[in-house]
Design a protein around this nucleic acid. Structure first.
Lengths: 205, 205
DNA sequence: TAGATTGTTAATCGATTAACAATC
DNA sequence: TAGATTGTTAATCGATTAACAATC
């Protein structure tokens, strides 16, 4: 059963908030009403989302916090390690490599790749920066399925083609370019400028 | 008339795609059908969104590309400069300061702020890094209304309080922490880990 | 004129919320 | 037992799509 994107996103928010302790730090049980209040949502929605993945609550008690974390984490694929590579060792690639959250949530970065000789051989956030020539080797020998694209738009499609050819199945695309992939590869576009527009709209209204 | 978030987001996507030349590079006219195909949407939606902000098309011709850019840019507040400050001069703050897109779309970064003595006094992407002590002065004297929060979660609320007190009206929050603001201040949360979960879900399915 | 495309109303579809019996 | 909370069905609401007259 394929879980819908909107449900996945809400489950992810719930997962990260519970792990971070934003909602209840030490409690054993948590009710859908408390969760809903934190996210400014309807409590029925919380129960329905958890029902989708088969998490059961208990009348008068609510849901077991640790069970929710474990089950949601399992469904989201965050309970076991996900190895990844980062294409582009600029500031954004560096920020992603250094972000402690990824390791915490099961995503480890195997290496960064760049064409800039000044960057090749350096280390960013405990990850080595390799030449793009090493890309295929690294991905194959570590059986990596996830790639983060932080390279310039001009080379995004070319990099994508190489990634797909060598077995990458999921691409997190931070370049503003639309990239083409075969049907069995999933792309998530992260166009942060779009969020900016919502703010400037309100400022200039 | 308040434009809904979903409409704003679609208009922003359209605006950036047209400016980048993703849809039609040099054409004078563009039809809602062509736009819709690019975004994998229904063409009625495109016409409705443009109708919301009063952009008129012409039967048999479509919409004037430049007019769409100008009108949408105007509504989104991207036609005139928006000065901003960035709180936190880590890699993410640096990536944002260096990103050429912001200047191109009317957002200029006045300064970065950090408490790390090693960073204070340096320059990132043509922006100076100042001590947090200078925050209020800089915002007041430049009449800045927009702030980007890339500091650690632990100080996000404290920084927010100072920003709000000195007149900031829009906050782009990259920290995973929920921040509290008065009603007249708008916050946009950019929790990129949420996007990651969608990819790991599909990989582990 | 014939044909393509807009603008808009009506119909459909899906998502959110309300209601409430079941349960501990 | 009484009361709180779940689980789920039904009702509402809003968003998307279809249809089509108007127009150039």
């Amino acid at each position: 059963m394929e879980i819908k994107g909107s449900v996945l996103e809400r489950l992810a928010r719930l997962y990260f908030s519970l792990r971070r302790g934003d909602i209840c730090e030490d409690c054993e049980w948590i009710s859908s009403a408390i969760i809903a209040e934190h996210f400014d949502m309807d409590d029925t929605q919380i129960r329905k989302d958890l029902a989708v993945i088969g998490v059961k609550g208990r009348p008068r008690m609510g849901f077991k916090r640790q069970e929710v974390i474990d089950e949601v984490g399992g469904v989201l694929g965050l309970n076991k390690p996900n190895k990844s590579v980062v294409i582009g060792a600029g500031r954004l690639g560096g920020a992603i490599s250094e972000y402690p959250g990824f390791k915490k949530y099961g995503v480890t970065i195997s290496a960064l790749f760049d064409n800039d000789p000044n960057k090749i051989g350096s280390v960013i956030g405990s990850c080595a920066v390799y030449s793009m020539d090493m890309l295929e080797n690294e991905i194959r020998s570590n059986n990596i399925k996830l790639a983060v694209l932080t390279c310039p738009s001009s080379v995004a499609q070319e990099a994508t083609n190489r990634l797909v050819k060598v077995g990458i199945k999921a691409i997190w695309n931070f370049s503003p370019k639309k990239i083409m992939v075969p049907e069995d590869v999933i792309v998530r576009n992260e166009h942060i400028s779009v969020g900016l527009a919502g703010l400037t709209y309100h400022l200039n209204k």
